[in-house]
Design a binder for these strands. Structure first.
Length: 395
RNA sequence: GCUGAGUUCGCGUAGCGGCAAUCGCACCUCGCUGUAGACGAGGCGCCCGGAAGGGCUGCGGGGGUUCGAGUCCCUCACUCAGCA
């Protein structure tokens, strides 16, 4: 079957909408947070746990799965969804992001994201790049063994067809946050050429191919890119969102104002609590982000209001000494397995002892937290009180 | 009792006579947004400082040699090993 998207309800005051993406592996009720499972697993979280918490789709990475175990192997196992025993909808990223994260993004000490605080902006010391970008595609040094690999729009799509996710992404070039207007424009033009090649290479009709919008922080480029992607694709992914918060929301607005409303919109790589509200309000349907699992493995867990707020970014660190004797669950308002069964004091102990269960319990909570938040957001759209829910969270 | 080895940050350690003194663990603080991340950065004698920096104390105790001692010498204490 051909994947499709349908809007069920539009919010009256904002661009938020509740909808449904239908795929051969099941339906995805949007808005929804998409946990990232780069290597065919959401790190430290079992597929059964994902299903039980209500996750509906998992995003894996073309680059990583190509290097290991290889797309042909995954195909032999019946595709990614079966291979990882998830048996639900999946999405793959094109590998374009690795151009950035292994190359440009490593410049300036690996700072990949611009914050509003100028002190945190990229510095100038260049780091060696692990990749080379040409018109044809990208040549990588494998981070596993240093061997050389090439990824092109055609090979990325070929790999993604073999991996067999329901939702796949065009091969794009990522602009560095350091690029000026001209450099960003050049990068965008490359992306556009690569996206057309991606589209032409794409044969499997049971997969939905997203085009990716770019254009850095520049309005006219963003709008041009959105128009271009809208003309050529049935699904819109908003890329290069490594911007300051305020700029990010502007960029989302510019994009969703231009793009056909009846197409699903994905915001690549974004997913802090406030981003989910601001994104949905501006018409985003799906988000993927490593945040819940990455910070989970380093001890941070999400907390809801009133203890969670914009100032603490809805998170705190289980490693803190204050949790030693804390008998409360991670988040008192949370219905996840972790919060229903374990105390902060116990998880603190596990984390200090580097016990593997701590990574599972915290990651599970964090993923549940964001998935559940987007489900609440969806419900609020259907019930007509999205703004009230947003206000309750972001104050 | 004799002989040998040892006693340096909470623990374990490094240290050609120029050291506030190495490294690991622990501890404290901070950071992670399409995952080279179960990770990374900083701190960890005391005092002042935002920092640069400055002051004080300091390598089992005591004494000595030396411009200068954790480093050399004497002595005491304790620990460990072997012999009695």
């Amino acid at each position: 079957m051909k994947p499709s998207y349908k809007i069920l309800q539009k919010d009256k005051k904002t661009k938020a909408r509740a909808g449904i993406i239908s795929t051969p592996n099941g339906d995805i009720e949007t808005p929804i947070f998409v946990p990232v499972g780069t290597q065919g697993t959401v790190k430290a979280v079992d597929p059964k746990q994902l299903r039980e918490m209500g996750a509906e789709v998992v995003l894996a990475n073309t680059y990583h799965l190509h290097l290991r175990p290889g797309e042909d192997l995954i195909k032999k196992f019946g595709g990614l969804s079966k291979f990882m025993s998830w048996n639900g909808p999946t999405m793959t990223d094109s590998g374009g992001f690795q151009v950035f994260s292994l190359g440009v993004g490593k410049e300036g000490g690996g700072v990949k994201f611009l914050r509003d605080d100028p002190k945190e902006r990229n510095t100038d010391d260049p780091k060696p790049r692990l990749n080379k970008i040409t018109e044809e595609g990208v040549t990588f040094q494998s981070h596993l063994d240093g061997s050389t690999h090439k990824l092109t729009p055609e090979s990325s799509i070929d790999i993604q067809e073999k991996i067999g996710a329901d939702l796949i992404v065009s091969f794009d070039d990522l602009e560095s946050p350091k690029y000026d207007y001209e450099e960003t424009k050049k990068s965008l033009e490359m992306t556009n050429r690569w996206e057309i090649r991606s589209k032409n290479a794409h044969k499997r009709k049971d997969q939905l191919l997203y085009g990716v919008t770019h254009g850095g922080p520049f309005r006219d480029l963003r709008e041009e890119s959105a128009r271009f992607v809208d003309e050529n694709f049935d699904a819109i992914a908003l890329g290069g969102a490594h911007l300051s918060k305020t700029n990010l929301y502007e960029v989302v607005d510019w994009t969703t104002d231009v793009v056909t409303s009846e197409k699903p919109r994905h915001l690549l790589g974004i997913g802090e609590v406030d981003d989910l509200f601001e994104g949905v309000e501006r018409g985003v349907d799906t988000f993927d982000c490593v945040i819940p699992t990455r910070i989970g493995r380093t001890g941070f867990f999400f907390i809801s209001p009133p203890s969670g707020n914009m100032k603490n970014r809805f998170r705190t660190d289980i490693d803190k000494p204050q949790f030693v004797k804390d008998m409360k669950p991670l988040d008192p308002n949370c219905s996840c397995y972790t919060c229903q069964n374990f105390t902060r004091g116990y998880i603190h102990h596990l984390f200090r002892a580097k016990e593997l269960l701590s990574y599972n319990l915290i990651s599970l909570h964090n993923v549940h937290f964001l998935v559940n938040l987007t489900k609440d957001i969806r419900k609020s759209i259907l019930e007509g009180n999205f703004k009230e829910l947003k206000k309750k969270w972001l104050m």
